[in-house]
């Protein structure tokens, strides 16, 4: 399956784009996505351990299976306030 991942802040800056498309096997989980992004997206390798991910606007751990049509986002450490 091919999923689109939204990028924000430093992740967007590092990748030079506000979203990337990543090819993953059906039933892949967030941990696999994390590793695929570290390997495939320039600039993300150095910060990949600090990134969180969201599935349909909720934080999702590395064990979460990725639904094929879900809205996926990469969430660097937040700094609002």
């Amino acid at each position: 399956m091919r999923i689109r991942v939204r990028l924000f802040a430093v992740a967007r800056q590092a990748a030079g784009t506000d979203s990337v498309e990543i090819e993953l096997p059906e039933g892949a989980d967030i941990g696999q996505l994390r590793r695929a992004m570290a390997a495939g997206v320039p600039g993300l390798g150095a910060i990949v351990d600090q990134l969180r991910f969201a599935v349909d606007e909720e934080f999702a751990g590395d064990g979460t299976k990725i639904p094929p049509t879900a809205d996926i986002a990469c969430i660097p450490p937040v700094s609002g306030g």
């Binding site: 802040a9 430093v10 934080f59 986002a73 969430i75 937040v78 700094s79 609002g80």
Partner: peptide, 8 residues
Amino acid sequence: KEVVPIWK
């Protein structure tokens, strides 16, 4: 400051 996806 911990969980809301806003960046500065």
